[in-house]
Design a protein around this nucleic acid. Structure first.
Lengths: 196, 196
DNA sequence: CAAGCAAGCAAACAAGCGTTCGATAAGGAG
DNA sequence: CTCCTTATCGAACGCTTGTTTGCTTGCTTG
């Protein structure tokens, strides 16, 4: 029986991880099946036993990336905390999975734009991403914001700030937690209801 | 005598514009010299009379893109206005050059990541970008912010929010001016000094 | 031990890539 | 008329790409 998801340690999982590393470093187009094969110690043709095509491999990498990010976000959240705290925790989890060297997955969803891929692939990628975005949308929905504040804009603004850290962040800078707290705070006081 | 910049209407300029359109649509790697040649009605080899390589052509496109964005930003600013107003105007100019269909240049600096290119090209691209970022840095420097607010974070947060609109914006949504004002306002009240 | 399947190797394929190069037409300068 | 430059064509070169195919190993199961 074939697995559809990646068991940790399986060959399929090894390939996905190597592919993720290369996709993150060079981008989809500039990554060759030979690069990926070489990283796993295999020959190019052997990859096709596990994945039908480069696109399918990328879709698997993308799904795994979303999975890892969502895990990191969910793990960072204390469900008993108030919405503002939970948002701060979610942002921290997101940035951690994006900025720490050992995890190379999150950068992919920032740098790869579904619009540029084939229709089939594009729809898969967009589907994956919605799982991630809902995580934040749900928290933002519970935030006590002033009347008249557009929660859509509010959420997109925050996600934009966070995603863009991937562009300017350099190792040795402030840790993800500090950045996350700073950014949430920047958006907070203006739109929040007065603490009664 | 060769020109180094693009005279409007020149052959070189025509190529740059066609290339920009294709780079924006498909990305650097997925854009072929044959695509660009075909858009201008030339044959692939003919492009090499005007540009020594694909990288050099892209560098020219990138420089032109920065130029166009900076123009759009500067044109939107009223130098006599106060810093908050000028920031709002700058943001509007940026979004206009990015989100309006007729200009295809701004998307390139959001979707192409210098880190992934050769060292030579990378350094050129980063150099271009600094011209654009200084435009915003200068205004942010003059903003009357509360003591203790990190202007670096503040600027990066705003630029992230703005750049990310390229990912989620769809034609028919709010006009750039509304988005720019909304986003500046979101960051404003928290960190601004009280209006004395 | 025999059979069968999982996994990978080795080698090739056609297509497409960036780029090169000699030829060529058009037009201005002397 | 001759010479030189500008701009392009037409055709190819060498290389890399994603992918396919037939063969071989090695483990597992009966």
């Amino acid at each position: 029986m074939a697995y559809t998801k990646a068991d940790p340690g399986s060959r399929r999982d090894t390939i996905i991880e190597a592919a993720a590393r290369q996709f993150a470093k060079a981008g989809y187009d500039a990554t060759t099946m030979r690069d990926i094969a070489s990283l796993t110690g295999m020959l190019p043709g052997s990859l096709y036993y596990h994945f039908r095509s480069k696109e399918e491999l990328f879709a698997a990498v993308h799904e795994e990336a979303i999975q890892k990010i969502c895990d990191s976000v969910v793990r960072a959240i204390d469900p008993a905390a108030d919405p503002w705290t939970r948002l701060e925790q979610a942002a921290t989890g997101y940035l951690e999975s994006m900025l720490m060297h050992d995890s190379v997955y999150a950068g992919i969803i920032v740098t790869e734009f579904p619009r540029r891929r084939s229709r089939n692939l594009r729809e898969q990628l967009i589907g994956h991403r919605q799982r991630f975005e809902r995580l934040f949308a749900d928290i933002v929905e519970e935030l006590p914001l002033k009347d008249g504040v557009d929660r859509s804009y509010w959420r997109l603004a925050l996600l934009g700030m966070l995603a863009w850290t991937y562009v300017w962040y350099r190792p040795g800078g402030d840790p993800p937690k500090v950045i996350a707290q700073t950014m949430v705070k920047m958006l907070r006081n203006d739109t929040a209801q007065a603490d009664s």
